[in-house]
Design a protein around this nucleic acid. Structure first.
Lengths: 350, 350
DNA sequence: CTCGTTTCTGGAAACGTTTCTATTTTATGC
DNA sequence: GCATAAAATAGAAACGTTTCCAGAAACGAG
């Protein structure tokens, strides 16, 4: 049930630069010059060409342009999982900034899988992207660095450190926020604080752990190595580890868990154990997410600004694509105290 | 601080089909035939070419392929706002399915703005996408339909009805879930139920309203027109309208609000008014989001499966791109009763 | 052995641009 | 009015593929 092709003649055969040249009665090179803003163009020519292009509704073919010029005006965006609202905010802000600069964004989920991530990078290389923004699954994959180098395009890493690789990075000062949070719990009398986070193969987790340890050190107390559980970023891991830790003989009295997937898992685990944050234990979430103010209002958190991370990442990439040099930006975190920082100690005293 | 170019010779000059042809000592057309699986190829040639391609690490140039063949293996994905977790889940599932079929996804936010959406569509047309999945801002934009037609590619619409336009659509049966929810509230004794949703210029809102009206009709009661507020999908609208409705002289005793942005706004508004869902009013959210089970556990909802919507959309698009015809799929909703369905009536009796 | 098919291969023409080079036109200074 | 430089234009060669076409090689059948 196709629409009659006579009605919309534009859709039948796309109009090319040749058509415009024929209509204006000039060479195709002149069309290109006018449209790309080349300086050596007379006013008479400019008017004539623009008129012809407008009459015909000419739109340059993207692939032909890219093939010839080498620039694709396309950037790649690789993350673990776009359904994670934290990444969603980052992606949104990146896309908005990049779009305004004339770039389009290819989105790819790595599903937390190194092999998928590698495939994605290859795919983006074949598509000759002008730049890449990525939150990588792991920092210590041997072939990763050379895969990124082969892209031959500027790279902005989100919360990752690839030593020896010349990229921009938007890092987060996790350790300060976590240290503040941990110190607060210690000052309230906690010693057995559980700490759940993702893989130690990324900066994120290492920097968080650094803050956790540092708080204990400042308090002059050894940190509870048996309560630190680092492994994966997903909810399943957070849930099972929470269950395991909170059924130990010497049960923890507090829990710091993050990022978002991990927190969700921990909450599920606690719920199943019948433990209530702010009462049966002190609880601090790492990272907030949309609507935290209404749905997580009782939960303390270590907060960071996802929108800023997105904007800074896009800005850093644009700068590099315009010939600027890579830079590292550190986004701060803040420990936000709410109701759930209380609780957990009664059980200890009993 | 560039790496020495001698070390990684691959990165200096990309290897083309000509290099492979030279190495194998055959014509470039033979390379193309082997690699594209053309039947008329001898075994000897196949082995020779594959070896040469492998030796050189040859990867076909994407743009050259697209320019010549016309297929871009790229699909466009336009939504209001990827930071909305509901869209995040849809996007994730779409991308996963499409990636496995060899397609990449260009993500664009329309920011709820008709003009931006139109610009995005033009951009995607110039990029000659093979297909489009879109959640449009509004159905009754005059030039929208012709803009989509000019794409010359199959389109899958998310929760939108564009009459006379030949596309697939993944619709949601909103009205059933909303009707069930509303009926439940009515049977509990409510008559003054507030209803907040987005623009009536899209199917989503109209179908929700249909369910709301239908419940009242079945109860034989006129529905409260002064308590229905339809306008925008964002949190600001939800918040201001909630405040307005719940400060009316004849205050509503219950609230149904959605989608996610609207719900968040409503929750904020109620919080500022000091009204507690499940106590001072009955409250039902339209749409759930990640972690609803732990953070929204007391809230009743009208639920639908975002992951399924994403998968179905991708599947429908793939089918159309393979020559199949458009189809319409309807995803069901379910009213899920939780604590917040109670409350609100004491105030009335007083 | 020759002829007609079939199978395979090479050469070249596209695809729609940008950009290089050469040529023509216009402007400038004397 | 003429030489010279500068500005504007046309023409053609790229970019890296796919695909069409023609011809070569292989293969049976008579």
């Amino acid at each position: 049930m196709q629409k009659g092709r006579a009605t919309t003649k534009a859709s039948t055969t796309p109009v090319t630069i040749h058509d415009v040249a024929a209509r204006a009665g000039v060479a195709i090179s002149s069309i290109s010059r006018v449209l790309s803003g080349h300086p050596d163009v007379s006013e008479r020519m400019r008017v004539k060409v623009l008129k012809a292009a407008d009459d015909l509704g000419y739109e340059p073919d993207f692939f032909a342009q890219s093939l010839r010029s080498g620039a694709t005006k396309t950037i790649g965006f690789i993350i673990r999982d776009i359904s994670n609202p934290f990444f969603g905010v980052i992606a949104q802000c990146c896309e908005q900034v990049l779009r305004k600069a004339g770039y389009s964004m290819l989105l790819m989920n790595s599903d937390g899988d190194v092999a998928t991530e590698n495939t994605n990078i290859s795919q983006l290389r074949r598509r000759k992207i002008d730049g890449l923004i990525a939150s990588l699954v792991s920092e210590d994959v041997p072939e990763l660095q050379s895969a990124l180098e082969k892209l031959n395009a500027p790279v902005v890493l989100l919360d990752r450190e690839l030593i020896g690789f010349n990229s921009s990075a938007i890092l987060t000062n996790h350790h300060q926020g976590i240290e503040d949070a941990t110190s607060d719990l210690i000052s309230r009398g906690h010693t057995r604080i559980a700490f759940i986070s993702g893989s130690t193969r990324v900066y994120t987790t290492r920097d968080r752990l650094k803050g956790f340890k540092s708080a204990y050190k400042k308090a002059g107390v050894a940190y509870p190595t048996d309560l630190v559980s680092l492994g994966k970023f997903d909810a399943e891991f957070g849930e099972s580890e929470t269950k395991r830790l909170f059924t130990l003989k010497d049960r923890p009295t507090a829990l710091i868990s993050g990022g978002i997937g991990s927190t969700a898992g921990s909450m599920r685990g606690l719920k199943k154990l019948g433990l209530v944050p702010g009462k049966d234990l002190a609880f601090i979430a790492i990272d907030e997410w949309p609507m935290f103010d209404v749905f997580g209002q009782q939960y303390s958190s270590v907060y960071r600004d996802a929108a800023m991370i997105g904007r800074e990442a896009a800005a850093a990439l644009l700068e590099m694509m315009n010939g600027g040099s890579p830079r590292t930006i550190v986004v701060e975190t803040a420990y936000i105290v709410r109701e759930s920082s209380a609780g957990g100690l009664k059980a200890k005293k009993k």
